[in-house]
């Protein structure tokens, strides 16, 4: 049940990221000028019939955020009471703290008229909150508890290369999201108006700060693409019979392809707001899928997995991992 609930929180967080994307894409961030109230109303008593224009997006985002916050409190308490592994309980509390900080950042950015540093921090922390909830969902799964061994027999010793590749891919995806958030909140999204070329050239023929930010995001996309291809290619070449790695690797290729396509359409449609928001949310999916793959590789080939493998049912290790041996 705890695992199912954590999956619900993951889905709600992803919805929240999409809703946040809609707020920025429709330029509705300041349509509710006060915070934490809404036009003087207590947030939850604001009349639904007044949710018009930009308020629909901004107030809707606040309502979804409050729901996620509430779900996160339940998740942290649930983990605290039911989870044996101290580090997993800590993840729950860090996620709760992060979502509270996220709410405060959201409020500050409204009260200070959307300054880029706060808005970028708000967008970046949102992705970390998503990663934390996804981590909880991953490590509370049955597959994690079983060490992903049952489906394929014992883990192949090592494959440190895959561990490093998968971790690097997740880290690169997050850096790329930081670049995207910077581009978004400095209004550099159309600084280069054509795609795949830049002003008709491979490299922009002239430079401004916005063009540099935009181009950095494109280079970031190229880097992430190469890393995803390397990671997924490695999995499909060496671990094709291991569904716990093969499935996220295939999914990673799909969400990456979708992301690049959406990125192109963001430029071609001059930032059509649904396309733009889908690009933000799908970016979270790229990061999240890379993270799950990295977590699973660590579970399969990391130090703890090797210890568990060598002693089979080593009680001490099992207890450390939270497995009820």
């Amino acid at each position: 049940m705890l695992h199912l609930f954590s999956r619900l929180v993951v889905a709600a967080t992803l919805l929240l990221i999409f809703a946040g994307g809609l707020v920025t894409s429709t330029a509705s961030g300041l349509s509710v000028p006060d915070w934490p109230n809404t036009y003087g109303w207590f947030m939850f008593s604001f009349p639904l019939d007044k949710m018009v224009g930009g308020i629909f997006y901004e107030h809707g985002h606040r309502l979804i955020a409050s729901t996620v916050g509430f779900l996160m409190v339940i998740l942290a308490v649930w983990l605290w009471r039911a989870e044996a592994r101290p580090w997993v309980r800590r993840v729950g509390f860090v996620a709760l703290g992060a979502v509270v900080a996220q709410g405060v950042l959201g409020g500050l950015t409204v009260l200070f008229f959307l300054p880029p540093p706060i808005s970028i921090a708000h967008a970046s922390l949102a992705q970390l909150v998503f990663c934390l909830t996804l981590t909880v969902a991953t490590v509370t799964s049955q597959g994690w508890h079983e060490g992903y061994q049952r489906m394929t027999g014992s883990a192949r010793e090592g494959d440190r290369l895959l561990m490093r590749l998968a971790t690097l891919t997740a880290a690169a995806a997050y850096i790329q999201i930081l670049l995207g958030a910077t581009m978004r909140h400095t209004e550099a999204g159309l600084a280069i108006p054509d795609f795949p070329l830049a002003f008709g050239h491979l490299i922009p023929p002239h430079w401004t700060a916005k063009i540099a930010i935009h181009f950095a995001h494109r280079l970031g996309a190229l880097t992430v693409t190469l890393l995803v291809l390397a990671t997924a290619g490695h999995v499909l070449a060496h671990h094709r019979r291991r569904p716990s790695l093969r499935n996220p690797a295939i999914l990673l290729l799909i969400v990456l392809g979708t992301q690049v396509t959406l990125g192109a359409y963001v430029v071609w449609t001059a930032k059509q707001f649904i396309v733009n928001s889908a690009h933000v949310a799908n970016g979270a999916l790229v990061l999240g899928t890379a993270l799950v793959l990295a977590l699973r590789t660590h579970r399969l080939f990391g130090r703890h997995a090797r210890q568990a493998g060598s002693s089979r049912v080593n009680r001490a290790t099992a207890a450390h991992l939270g497995v009820r041996a």
Partner: peptide
């Protein structure tokens, strides 16, 4: 995981320190 918690709060603190640009 402990390492992951650091950037979360670093981000929040950085943003708070930036303050508004009113």
């Amino acid at each position: 995981l402990k390492g992951l918690s650091v950037p979360v709060f670093a981000l929040a603190l950085t943003a708070a320190a930036c303050g508004g640009n009113a």
